[in-house]
Write a protein that binds this DNA or RNA. Structure first.
Length: 767
DNA sequence: GTAGCGACTTAGTAGCTCATGA
DNA sequence: TCATGAGCTACTAAGTCGCTAC
């Protein structure tokens, strides 16, 4: 890794989402001259040569890799299997429909038995031992498997640990009993099945051992129940009022609904912001009757406090609900999850990520978003496009409504979509990260990053060479790439002005975002970055760069105003096109993935010491993770209760220290007693006291480690890098190498997402 | 080449849940 | 049993990037 990725404590100190008005002058976005000499420009022969040479080796590698994919692809076999599946499907369609009702999905025939490898999803590695009885029993068992899986994935997700076998046997039995009631016959079969479920751990579908589609399609069969819509607006009770100029006023239901959105946010900083208030008021007025419009003309004269109090009381009442009431709500949510939270994709029941349509409300843009406070309108079935397979049972729209469209596009992964009214962008209903479709993509992402590892030295050599190019566009590209590589900056697409907050990435950096220091704090050629990145999170960093980079930056800044683009002859499209030429599938964001993962791997090697115990090793892991989070600038607002929780942890530590002191004293006394008495009883007392001291020391150490970890994590978010940038196989390999339970670093959801890595990585895995 | 769109990933946080300790 | 707070999940905004039409 060139240059290394320096930790930036100063950045963390000052880093925060910037909300101050970062107004800038009308930006000079005119890039008339940008790339005007592009056609005339030709790549230097040398660079061409390097490129072509590199491309050759890349291609070889690519072909090799494609081959390896092909190996598990087996497209010919897939074709055969498809035929087979057709037959099976028609056979199933003729089958009785009882099962439809029983498992809650209308087309169980398509749900693949987890043991069945006789389908177009062919499992080459392990022919699973399947006990097959007569056909009746088999179909019975199929239903059972599906039910058990759904119960585990859905209702019991939170209570059950996937590696815990025996613990939840009672609950499992209960669920099994429920299921037994649903299945209408064959007592013997049920009992046999029940025993089986109790004894065998859940069989997870190992999609990573199966074929992938190579024709660009994402699925063959897709069936789901459609999205869940936001509940209809419930008007306020009679005694809750809105006041205008101190006078009670009744609002029409549409106006009242929008008013409730504002009143619910009254305690939030948003409602103090001018843009928010202005946008809200403008959109609110659109919902008013003409009478209301003429009456309510000034937001300052509006009093929402009674409404606000009502919602607070409601929220409080929810908290005070009895156990039974809470349980009832929980059960209802579980029922909805069970009904709408899953789909059937290519014979497997898969969890949907977000099956609820976003409810109406006020838009909460981040940073200085010009559209904050605008009304996010209610989405109706008529706005929603459903995507499913032709041969599936299509989801039904709510009574009296219709879908905007039902389409059957298997080149995409979404199940439903609609266009939101704030930015006009499309929103999707997609699968959960634990699904095959997301997992495959994730795995592929890390494989691309690993390919970059093989050619990164060459790419670095080339961009260093390009710093000397005669062409400005090439120099700019090379310097930008250096920043993306060294500092893990995002690509930085251009954004439509006035539509979103003013944030930038590498390619869209402006002159005002950097400062050059020929010498600073004893270091030469320092560049200071200060800009708002994604989500308006501040990026602040002072970094010494190579002389040539520094000189180039000086050149790029010549004759430019603060609001001008630093890289005026570069955009993400040009950069990615160039990267694509260097390596197939290479884009700017691959560098982030690569540098994050390689940093984790290196840091784990450096920080893990073999003699440490498990908590200390986990602390080392978190520190390695933290190094990546700092590199990627993943910040968070310090938790509101941070100081308090640190204080309470510190008092626990103090108490433990006192306890240890006392225990040591007792041990000393016991030792001297034992010395004088020389009997078995006193020796036993010494042993007990010694063990007590040891136990307390361990407890103290755990607390201290916890405190260190928490303190270091104050403003850093580890989750984002863990979920999106760190190849999970590195973490799994580390766990295996040091015998750390994987549960120590991944929670249940994360283990589900990374099931592929947990299964496939051994301790020797190298990124 | 570029603007716009569509599909997807990446991102921080509000609010809920559940474990823990008094 | 209850209060508290840490951890987790759901939510949805905000990015990236490829494709298409002009």
């Amino acid at each position: 890794m060139s240059g290394g990725h320096a930790y930036r404590d100063d950045q963390m100190e000052s880093g925060s989402r910037i909300t101050e008005s970062n107004k800038r002058k009308e930006r000079h976005r005119d890039k008339v001259h940008k790339h005007k000499d592009h056609k005339k420009d030709k790549e230097r022969e040398k660079s061409k040569h390097i490129n072509s040479h590199h491309r050759d080796s890349e291609k070889k590698h690519r072909d090799k890799e494609k081959e390896s994919w092909k190996h598990i692809d087996g497209s010919v076999e897939r074709h055969k299997d498809r035929e087979k599946r057709k037959e099976e499907k028609s056979k199933w369609f003729g089958a009785d429909c009882k099962q439809e009702r029983e498992n809650g999905f209308p087309s169980p025939p398509h749900i693949k038995h987890e043991f069945d490898n006789n389908d177009f999803y062919h499992t080459p590695k392990h022919g699973k031992p399947v006990k097959r009885g007569n056909s009746d029993e088999e179909s019975e068992y199929k239903i059972k498997r599906i039910k058990v899986e759904s119960v585990k994935k859905g209702i019991k997700r939170k209570q059950k640990e996937e590696y815990d076998e025996g613990e939840d046997a009672e609950e499992e039995e209960e669920e099994d009993q429920k299921h037994k009631k649903k299945c209408k016959d064959k007592k013997t079969g049920d009992i046999a099945g029940k025993k089986k479920v109790k004894k065998e751990p859940e069989e997870k579908w190992k999609w990573w051992e199966e074929e992938r589609y190579t024709d660009g399609s994402k699925w063959r069969f897709l069936e789901h129940k459609g999205p869940v819509f936001a509940p209809a607006y419930e008007p306020l009770p009679e005694h809750v009022h809105f006041y205008y100029e101190g006078k009670m006023s009744n609002l029409s239901p549409p106006a009242e609904e929008v008013a409730t959105f504002f009143s619910k946010m009254l305690d939030h900083e948003y409602t103090t912001k001018d843009i928010f208030r202005k946008n809200f008021f403008k959109d609110w007025r659109k919902e008013m009757t003409s009478e209301e419009k003429s009456k309510i003309t000034d937001l300052k004269k509006c009093d929402f406090s009674e409404m606000s109090q009502y919602f607070k009381a409601q929220s409080e009442a929810r908290k005070q609900m009895t156990k039974e009431e809470k349980l009832k709500i929980k059960e209802e949510n579980e029922r909805i999850l069970e009904e709408y939270g899953f789909c059937v994709m290519d014979n497997h029941k898969e969890r949907i990520g977000n099956f609820r349509i976003e409810p109406p409300g006020l838009f909460r843009g981040r940073g200085d978003h010009p559209k904050m406070g605008m009304l996010k309108r209610r989405i109706r079935p008529e706005d929603v496009i459903i995507n499913c397979s032709k041969d599936s049972k299509h989801p039904k729209p709510p009574p009296g409504t219709r879908w905007k469209e039902v389409r059957h596009d298997n080149k995409v992964t979404w199940l439903a979509s609609w266009t939101e009214n704030i930015q006009g962008s499309i929103k999707y209903i997609m699968l959960n990260p634990s699904s095959r479709i997301k997992g495959e993509k994730d795995w592929q992402k890390y494989e691309t990053a690993r390919r970059l590892k093989k050619c990164v030295d060459h790419i670095r050599a080339q961009y260093r060479d390009d710093w000397k190019s005669k062409e400005m566009r090439i120099r700019q590209r090379a310097v930008a790439l250096y920043f993306i590589d060294k500092l893990a900056l995002r690509a930085g697409n251009e954004k439509e002005e006035g539509e979103t907050a003013d944030t930038v990435g590498c390619c869209s950096l402006r002159v005002e975002h950097i400062k050059l220091y020929p010498e600073l704090d004893g270091q030469d050629f320092v560049v200071e970055f200060d800009f708002l990145g994604k989500d308006s999170i501040r990026y602040y960093n002072k970094i010494p760069v190579e002389k040539r980079v520094f000189k180039n930056l000086q050149l790029f800044l010549e004759n430019k105003q603060a609001e001008d683009d630093l890289f005026d002859r570069l955009n993400t499209s040009i950069l990615n096109k160039h990267l694509q030429e260097l390596m197939d599938g290479l884009t700017a964001k691959v560098f982030r993935t690569y540098n994050a993962s390689i940093t984790l791997q290196q840091q784990l090697k450096v920080l893990t010491s073999p003699d440490e115990n498990v908590p200390a090793k986990v602390l080392s892991y978190n520190r390695a993770n933290r190094a990546v989070a700092i590199l990627c600038n993943h910040q968070r607002a310090p938790p509101k209760t941070f100081e308090k929780s640190m204080q309470s942890l510190q008092s626990k530590i103090d108490a433990k220290k006192q306890q240890l002191f006392a225990a040591k004293k007792e041990l000393k006394v016991a030792k001297s007693e034992s010395k004088s008495l020389h009997d078995e009883k006193s020796r036993k007392v010494v042993e007990t006291k010694r063990k007590a001291v040891q136990r307390i020391e361990e407890q103290l150490m755990k607390l201290e480690v916890q405190a260190t970890d928490r303190e270091e994590n104050k403003q850093i978010a580890l989750g984002t890098s863990k979920l999106n940038y760190l190849d999970p196989r590195i973490s799994v390999a580390w766990c295996k190498k040091w015998s750390i339970p994987v549960e120590k670093i991944y929670n249940k959801t994360q283990r589900e997402k990374f099931a592929w890595a947990i299964d496939m990585a051994d301790e020797d895995f190298e990124f």
